[in-house]
Nucleic acid binder design. Structure first.
Lengths: 167, 167
DNA sequence: TTTGAAATTCATTCATC
DNA sequence: GATGAATGAATTTCAAA
Protein backbone atom coordinates (compact mmCIF):
# COMPACT_ATOMS: atom_id res chain seq x y z
CA UNK A 1 0.00 0.00 0.00
CA UNK A 2 2.88 2.37 0.73
CA UNK A 3 5.89 2.11 -1.53
CA UNK A 4 9.41 3.34 -0.97
CA UNK A 5 8.64 6.79 -2.37
CA UNK A 6 5.72 7.23 0.02
CA UNK A 7 7.96 6.25 2.92
CA UNK A 8 10.61 8.76 1.90
CA UNK A 9 8.00 11.50 1.60
CA UNK A 10 6.50 10.69 5.00
CA UNK A 11 9.91 10.83 6.60
CA UNK A 12 10.66 14.20 5.01
CA UNK A 13 7.34 15.78 5.97
CA UNK A 14 7.62 14.58 9.55
CA UNK A 15 10.94 16.35 9.77
CA UNK A 16 9.76 19.54 8.06
CA UNK A 17 6.16 19.87 6.97
CA UNK A 18 6.74 23.26 5.39
CA UNK A 19 9.58 22.59 3.02
CA UNK A 20 8.59 23.60 -0.48
CA UNK A 21 7.27 20.91 -2.74
CA UNK A 22 10.28 21.52 -4.97
CA UNK A 23 12.69 20.82 -2.14
CA UNK A 24 10.70 17.75 -1.18
CA UNK A 25 10.85 16.51 -4.77
CA UNK A 26 14.60 17.03 -4.87
CA UNK A 27 15.07 15.29 -1.53
CA UNK A 28 13.18 12.17 -2.63
CA UNK A 29 14.42 12.22 -6.23
CA UNK A 30 11.30 12.80 -8.33
CA UNK A 31 9.67 15.63 -10.27
CA UNK A 32 7.68 18.20 -8.27
CA UNK A 33 4.44 17.16 -9.92
CA UNK A 34 5.04 13.61 -8.74
CA UNK A 35 5.70 14.48 -5.12
CA UNK A 36 2.72 16.83 -5.14
CA UNK A 37 0.45 14.02 -6.31
CA UNK A 38 1.86 11.58 -3.76
CA UNK A 39 1.43 14.00 -0.87
CA UNK A 40 -2.14 14.69 -1.92
CA UNK A 41 -2.89 10.96 -2.04
CA UNK A 42 -1.31 10.38 1.38
CA UNK A 43 -3.48 13.13 2.79
CA UNK A 44 -6.63 11.78 1.18
CA UNK A 45 -5.94 8.23 2.33
CA UNK A 46 -5.60 9.58 5.84
CA UNK A 47 -1.98 8.50 6.24
CA UNK A 48 -1.12 12.14 6.85
CA UNK A 49 -3.54 13.47 9.43
CA UNK A 50 -2.44 17.09 9.30
CA UNK A 51 0.42 19.50 9.68
CA UNK A 52 1.21 21.07 13.05
CA UNK A 53 3.59 23.72 14.27
CA UNK A 54 5.61 22.41 17.21
CA UNK A 55 5.99 24.98 19.96
CA UNK A 56 8.67 25.37 22.61
CA UNK A 57 6.99 24.97 26.00
CA UNK A 58 9.74 26.86 27.81
CA UNK A 59 9.30 29.84 25.48
CA UNK A 60 5.60 29.77 26.32
CA UNK A 61 6.33 30.08 30.01
CA UNK A 62 5.43 26.48 30.77
CA UNK A 63 8.72 25.07 31.93
CA UNK A 64 7.49 22.30 34.21
CA UNK A 65 6.08 19.15 32.67
CA UNK A 66 4.60 16.15 34.42
CA UNK A 67 2.88 12.88 33.74
CA UNK A 68 -0.01 12.39 36.11
CA UNK A 69 -1.53 8.94 36.43
CA UNK A 70 -5.15 8.91 37.50
CA UNK A 71 -7.28 6.08 38.72
CA UNK A 72 -11.04 6.41 38.17
CA UNK A 73 -13.53 4.58 40.38
CA UNK A 74 -15.78 3.05 39.25
CA UNK A 75 -14.20 2.85 35.80
CA UNK A 76 -17.55 2.91 34.02
CA UNK A 77 -17.86 4.20 30.47
CA UNK A 78 -19.71 7.19 31.81
CA UNK A 79 -16.94 8.06 34.24
CA UNK A 80 -14.09 7.39 31.82
CA UNK A 81 -15.58 9.40 28.96
CA UNK A 82 -16.71 12.19 31.24
CA UNK A 83 -13.29 12.56 32.78
CA UNK A 84 -11.57 12.30 29.41
CA UNK A 85 -13.60 15.15 27.94
CA UNK A 86 -13.13 17.31 31.00
CA UNK A 87 -9.40 16.81 31.40
CA UNK A 88 -8.71 17.20 27.67
CA UNK A 89 -10.04 20.74 27.80
CA UNK A 90 -7.97 21.99 30.72
CA UNK A 91 -5.37 24.56 29.63
CA UNK A 92 -2.60 22.71 31.48
CA UNK A 93 -3.22 19.52 29.51
CA UNK A 94 -0.98 18.73 26.55
CA UNK A 95 -2.02 15.14 25.95
CA UNK A 96 -4.19 12.44 27.45
CA UNK A 97 -3.61 8.69 27.32
CA UNK A 98 -6.42 6.31 28.23
CA UNK A 99 -4.70 3.16 29.41
CA UNK A 100 -4.99 -0.30 30.82
CA UNK A 101 -3.16 -1.22 34.00
CA UNK A 102 -2.95 0.26 37.44
CA UNK A 103 -4.15 3.68 36.27
CA UNK A 104 -6.91 4.58 33.82
CA UNK A 105 -5.37 7.83 32.54
CA UNK A 106 -1.98 9.32 32.00
CA UNK A 107 -2.18 13.08 31.67
CA UNK A 108 0.71 15.00 30.21
CA UNK A 109 0.65 18.55 31.58
CA UNK A 110 2.84 21.63 31.21
CA UNK A 111 2.66 24.42 33.78
CA UNK A 112 4.78 27.47 34.64
CA UNK A 113 6.27 26.09 37.87
CA UNK A 114 5.87 23.55 40.63
CA UNK A 115 3.19 25.68 42.24
CA UNK A 116 1.17 25.32 39.08
CA UNK A 117 1.68 21.59 39.16
CA UNK A 118 0.60 21.30 42.76
CA UNK A 119 -2.46 23.45 42.07
CA UNK A 120 -3.41 21.29 39.10
CA UNK A 121 -3.38 18.18 41.29
CA UNK A 122 -4.97 19.46 44.48
CA UNK A 123 -7.36 22.05 43.04
CA UNK A 124 -8.43 20.70 39.69
CA UNK A 125 -8.14 16.91 39.74
CA UNK A 126 -9.47 16.34 43.22
CA UNK A 127 -12.62 18.32 42.52
CA UNK A 128 -13.77 15.41 40.38
CA UNK A 129 -15.49 12.77 42.53
CA UNK A 130 -14.61 9.91 40.18
CA UNK A 131 -10.88 10.50 40.72
CA UNK A 132 -9.87 7.79 43.19
CA UNK A 133 -6.10 8.08 43.05
CA UNK A 134 -3.46 10.38 41.58
CA UNK A 135 0.26 9.94 41.17
CA UNK A 136 2.53 12.65 39.80
CA UNK A 137 5.82 12.15 37.98
CA UNK A 138 7.82 15.19 36.97
CA UNK A 139 9.08 14.99 33.37
CA UNK A 140 12.76 15.84 33.25
CA UNK A 141 12.94 15.37 29.51
CA UNK A 142 10.59 14.58 26.64
CA UNK A 143 11.90 13.30 23.32
CA UNK A 144 9.87 12.52 20.28
CA UNK A 145 11.09 10.27 17.50
CA UNK A 146 12.13 12.41 14.53
CA UNK A 147 9.83 10.36 12.30
CA UNK A 148 7.46 7.45 12.74
CA UNK A 149 8.08 4.80 10.12
CA UNK A 150 5.54 2.36 8.68
CA UNK A 151 5.69 -1.12 10.20
CA UNK A 152 7.78 -3.56 8.22
CA UNK A 153 5.45 -5.68 6.11
CA UNK A 154 4.65 -9.01 7.69
CA UNK A 155 4.09 -12.40 6.05
CA UNK A 156 5.01 -13.76 2.62
CA UNK A 157 3.88 -12.69 -0.87
CA UNK A 158 0.17 -11.90 -1.15
CA UNK A 159 -2.27 -13.91 -3.29
CA UNK A 160 -2.24 -11.14 -5.87
CA UNK A 161 1.53 -11.24 -6.11
CA UNK A 162 1.60 -15.02 -6.34
CA UNK A 163 -1.22 -15.01 -8.93
CA UNK A 164 0.72 -14.35 -12.13
CA UNK A 165 2.66 -16.94 -14.12
CA UNK A 166 6.41 -16.65 -14.06
CA UNK A 167 7.82 -15.07 -17.25
CA UNK B 1 7.01 39.03 25.04
CA UNK B 2 4.14 37.50 23.06
CA UNK B 3 1.24 39.75 22.23
CA UNK B 4 -2.27 38.82 21.23
CA UNK B 5 -1.37 38.60 17.54
CA UNK B 6 1.43 36.14 18.28
CA UNK B 7 -0.95 34.03 20.32
CA UNK B 8 -3.50 33.96 17.52
CA UNK B 9 -0.84 32.98 15.00
CA UNK B 10 0.51 30.22 17.23
CA UNK B 11 -2.96 28.82 17.69
CA UNK B 12 -3.58 28.84 13.94
CA UNK B 13 -0.29 27.19 13.03
CA UNK B 14 -0.70 24.47 15.63
CA UNK B 15 -4.02 23.60 14.03
CA UNK B 16 -2.73 23.76 10.46
CA UNK B 17 0.90 24.51 9.78
CA UNK B 18 0.44 24.50 6.03
CA UNK B 19 -2.33 26.99 5.54
CA UNK B 20 -1.17 29.69 3.15
CA UNK B 21 0.21 32.84 4.68
CA UNK B 22 -2.65 34.72 3.06
CA UNK B 23 -5.23 32.57 4.81
CA UNK B 24 -3.33 32.93 8.08
CA UNK B 25 -3.30 36.70 7.63
CA UNK B 26 -7.04 36.73 7.01
CA UNK B 27 -7.68 34.49 10.02
CA UNK B 28 -5.78 36.74 12.39
CA UNK B 29 -6.82 40.02 10.75
CA UNK B 30 -3.58 41.53 9.45
CA UNK B 31 -1.82 41.98 6.11
CA UNK B 32 0.08 38.97 4.70
CA UNK B 33 3.39 40.77 5.05
CA UNK B 34 2.68 41.29 8.74
CA UNK B 35 1.84 37.69 9.49
CA UNK B 36 4.85 36.58 7.47
CA UNK B 37 7.12 38.77 9.57
CA UNK B 38 5.56 37.58 12.83
CA UNK B 39 5.90 33.93 11.89
CA UNK B 40 9.51 34.46 10.93
CA UNK B 41 10.20 36.16 14.28
CA UNK B 42 8.47 33.37 16.23
CA UNK B 43 10.62 30.85 14.41
CA UNK B 44 13.82 32.79 15.05
CA UNK B 45 13.01 33.30 18.73
CA UNK B 46 12.54 29.55 19.00
CA UNK B 47 8.90 29.79 20.03
CA UNK B 48 8.07 27.71 16.97
CA UNK B 49 10.41 24.74 16.95
CA UNK B 50 9.38 23.36 13.59
CA UNK B 51 6.56 22.05 11.46
CA UNK B 52 5.68 18.37 11.45
CA UNK B 53 3.32 16.20 9.48
CA UNK B 54 1.17 14.16 11.85
CA UNK B 55 0.79 10.57 10.67
CA UNK B 56 -1.96 8.06 11.34
CA UNK B 57 -0.40 5.13 13.21
CA UNK B 58 -3.17 2.76 12.18
CA UNK B 59 -2.56 3.58 8.51
CA UNK B 60 1.12 2.76 9.04
CA UNK B 61 0.24 -0.70 10.33
CA UNK B 62 1.03 0.16 13.94
CA UNK B 63 -2.34 -0.24 15.59
CA UNK B 64 -1.24 -1.14 19.11
CA UNK B 65 0.15 1.57 21.35
CA UNK B 66 1.50 1.22 24.86
CA UNK B 67 3.15 3.20 27.60
CA UNK B 68 5.95 1.21 29.15
CA UNK B 69 7.37 2.33 32.45
CA UNK B 70 10.95 1.30 33.06
CA UNK B 71 12.98 1.35 36.23
CA UNK B 72 16.75 1.63 35.83
CA UNK B 73 19.13 0.35 38.51
CA UNK B 74 21.35 1.96 39.48
CA UNK B 75 19.90 5.23 38.15
CA UNK B 76 23.30 6.74 37.49
CA UNK B 77 23.76 9.40 34.83
CA UNK B 78 25.65 6.88 32.75
CA UNK B 79 22.82 4.37 32.89
CA UNK B 80 20.04 6.91 32.38
CA UNK B 81 21.68 8.59 29.41
CA UNK B 82 22.79 5.34 27.88
CA UNK B 83 19.34 3.84 28.07
CA UNK B 84 17.73 7.05 26.81
CA UNK B 85 19.88 7.12 23.69
CA UNK B 86 19.36 3.46 23.01
CA UNK B 87 15.60 3.38 23.48
CA UNK B 88 15.05 6.61 21.53
CA UNK B 89 16.45 4.95 18.44
CA UNK B 90 14.31 1.82 18.46
CA UNK B 91 11.82 1.79 15.58
CA UNK B 92 8.95 0.96 17.94
CA UNK B 93 9.56 4.08 20.02
CA UNK B 94 7.39 7.14 19.39
CA UNK B 95 8.37 9.18 22.42
CA UNK B 96 10.44 8.92 25.57
CA UNK B 97 9.78 10.66 28.90
CA UNK B 98 12.49 10.76 31.53
CA UNK B 99 10.66 11.07 34.83
CA UNK B 100 10.83 11.26 38.56
CA UNK B 101 8.87 8.83 40.68
CA UNK B 102 8.56 5.08 40.79
CA UNK B 103 9.87 4.67 37.24
CA UNK B 104 12.74 6.43 35.49
CA UNK B 105 11.33 6.25 31.96
CA UNK B 106 7.98 6.19 30.26
CA UNK B 107 8.28 4.88 26.73
CA UNK B 108 5.48 5.45 24.27
CA UNK B 109 5.60 2.71 21.64
CA UNK B 110 3.49 1.77 18.61
CA UNK B 111 3.64 -1.74 17.18
CA UNK B 112 1.57 -3.78 14.71
CA UNK B 113 -0.06 -6.07 17.26
CA UNK B 114 0.18 -7.50 20.77
CA UNK B 115 2.86 -9.92 19.62
CA UNK B 116 4.97 -6.94 18.67
CA UNK B 117 4.37 -5.42 22.07
CA UNK B 118 5.33 -8.58 23.90
CA UNK B 119 8.44 -8.93 21.75
CA UNK B 120 9.46 -5.35 22.50
CA UNK B 121 9.27 -6.01 26.22
CA UNK B 122 10.77 -9.48 26.47
CA UNK B 123 13.28 -9.32 23.61
CA UNK B 124 14.41 -5.72 23.46
CA UNK B 125 14.05 -4.17 26.90
CA UNK B 126 15.23 -7.11 28.93
CA UNK B 127 18.45 -7.38 26.95
CA UNK B 128 19.60 -4.23 28.73
CA UNK B 129 21.20 -5.10 32.07
CA UNK B 130 20.32 -1.74 33.65
CA UNK B 131 16.59 -2.40 33.21
CA UNK B 132 15.44 -3.47 36.66
CA UNK B 133 11.68 -3.39 36.23
CA UNK B 134 9.16 -2.97 33.41
CA UNK B 135 5.44 -2.33 33.51
CA UNK B 136 3.29 -2.19 30.39
CA UNK B 137 0.05 -0.27 29.95
CA UNK B 138 -1.85 -0.59 26.69
CA UNK B 139 -2.97 2.78 25.30
CA UNK B 140 -6.65 2.62 24.35
CA UNK B 141 -6.71 6.20 23.18
CA UNK B 142 -4.28 9.07 22.76
CA UNK B 143 -5.49 12.65 22.48
CA UNK B 144 -3.37 15.69 21.95
CA UNK B 145 -4.53 19.19 22.78
CA UNK B 146 -5.43 20.99 19.55
CA UNK B 147 -3.11 23.84 20.54
CA UNK B 148 -0.81 24.62 23.44
CA UNK B 149 -1.38 28.15 24.70
CA UNK B 150 1.19 30.41 26.39
CA UNK B 151 0.90 30.51 30.18
CA UNK B 152 -1.12 33.42 31.48
CA UNK B 153 1.27 36.12 32.65
CA UNK B 154 1.94 35.99 36.35
CA UNK B 155 2.62 38.80 38.81
CA UNK B 156 2.03 42.56 38.65
CA UNK B 157 3.58 45.20 36.39
CA UNK B 158 7.30 44.79 35.82
CA UNK B 159 9.94 47.30 36.89
CA UNK B 160 10.23 48.50 33.30
CA UNK B 161 6.52 49.12 33.07
CA UNK B 162 6.43 50.89 36.41
CA UNK B 163 9.46 52.99 35.47
CA UNK B 164 7.73 55.84 33.65
CA UNK B 165 6.03 58.78 35.36
CA UNK B 166 2.25 58.79 35.32
CA UNK B 167 0.78 61.22 32.71
C1' DT C 1 5.79 47.54 13.38
C1' DT C 2 2.49 47.58 9.61
C1' DT C 3 1.27 47.95 5.02
C1' DG C 4 0.48 47.63 -0.28
C1' DA C 5 2.60 46.86 -4.47
C1' DA C 6 6.43 44.98 -7.11
C1' DA C 7 9.42 41.24 -7.92
C1' DT C 8 10.27 36.50 -7.51
C1' DT C 9 9.39 31.88 -6.51
C1' DC C 10 6.24 28.32 -6.09
C1' DA C 11 2.12 25.22 -6.66
C1' DT C 12 -0.77 23.24 -9.82
C1' DT C 13 -2.59 21.63 -14.14
C1' DC C 14 -2.43 18.84 -18.05
C1' DA C 15 -0.87 16.88 -22.46
C1' DT C 16 2.44 13.43 -23.22
C1' DC C 17 5.01 9.56 -22.19
C1' DG D 1 1.95 6.53 -12.45
C1' DA D 2 5.66 10.06 -13.87
C1' DT D 3 7.15 14.11 -16.27
C1' DG D 4 8.02 18.99 -17.92
C1' DA D 5 6.18 23.22 -19.69
C1' DA D 6 2.68 26.69 -19.00
C1' DT D 7 -0.21 29.22 -16.10
C1' DG D 8 -2.05 31.03 -12.09
C1' DA D 9 -1.04 31.86 -7.05
C1' DA D 10 1.54 32.39 -3.58
C1' DT D 11 5.64 34.10 -1.03
C1' DT D 12 8.88 37.60 -0.26
C1' DT D 13 10.98 42.11 -0.45
C1' DC D 14 10.96 46.87 0.40
C1' DA D 15 9.91 51.78 0.37
C1' DA D 16 6.77 54.46 2.80
C1' DA D 17 3.93 55.55 6.69
Amino acid sequence: MLDELDRLILRQLQKDARQTNRDLATAVGVAPSTSLERVRALREKGVIRGYRAEVNLDALGREVQAMISVRIRPPSRRNIEGFREWVSRLPETIAVFVTSGRQDFLIHVAVPDTNGLYAFVIDRLTQRPEVADVETSVVYEHRRAPAVEPAREQGGPSAAQRGGAAP
